[in-house]
Design a protein around this nucleic acid. Structure first.
Lengths: 134, 134
DNA sequence: GCTTGACCCTGGAGTGGCTACAGGCTGCAT
DNA sequence: ATGCAGCCTGTAGCCACTCCAGGGTCAAGC
């Protein structure tokens, strides 16, 4: 038997999502528009809870909403090969690796800059110097 | 003697910035509105070249435009201690470290997920499973 | 039955940091 | 005179939300 329906606030609490974000996901087509109560409140069911949970976990792993949409679409075609799912995940991993490398390089430069600070006046500041006339 | 003035396109090429971005910086108050030619073209000088160079290098290091603004303001008060400059840089470094840690953790999780893919059908996909009912 | 307060609704605007038009003007070479 | 690159303004779009105003709804307490 189905668990009774619940409000957007309940869904928000259950998934750690803000109410506005849930409505935004609905506008974006990630969540289907749920039925409404007599007072025009959204009435969600367990399916929505699962779907939103999926979205949140994927978002926490850094997938874009477009990627999440693609993953959700794929999840519905249960007989297909999961190669496409794997491809999305691998592409995302590659992107994360690119970001990590960039951020690490940036960190090195930034640390070097800070190291050179001799704590004098602004006029002789090495940090501003390094950013300066280049 | 001053180098003659040059156009926004020249400034863009010299600094590797898009023309639209330069105009955006002007709107945002990061670059002062330059004098105009008879035909209403922006006429930049060497000072602008240096200032935009500074902005670009700071942006490349990941400073926000608000931080860049603060650094530029500080750079003008040449007699002050550069402690404030140091503080901005250190705060940014800390932020970069936070991002690095988060991204590294995310990478680990993502790699684990992908590793488990047995390349079967979507129905038995471990990736979707891991994102799923949780 | 009435009030209070928490919750829900819609629609619109704002965030950062650009980027991309559309529609028109300028400037220089041919 | 003509063509074309480059410049001008103003506006809208991107991502993924987040917040707000101005209202409607509902359950609990008195």
């Amino acid at each position: 038997m189905a668990t009774g329906s619940f409000s957007i606030g309940d869904l928000a609490r259950a998934t750690g999502t803000k109410v506005e974000t849930i409505r935004y996901y609905e506008r974006s087509g990630l969540l289907p528009p749920p039925p409404r109560t007599g007072g025009n409140y959204r009435a969600y069911g367990d399916g929505d809870l699962m779907r939103l949970g999926f979205i949140r976990r994927a978002r926490d792993l850094g997938f874009s909403l477009a990627q999440v949409r693609a993953l959700l679409d794929l999840a519905d075609q249960r007989e297909r090969s999961c190669a496409a799912v794997d491809a999305i995940a691998r592409e995302h991993l590659a992107e994360v690796d690119r970001k990590l490398a960039g951020l690490a390089a940036l960190r090195r430069e930034l640390a070097l800059l800070i190291e050179q600070c001799r704590h004098g006046t602004v006029a002789e500041c090495r940090i501003l110097e390094a950013l300066g006339p280049g």
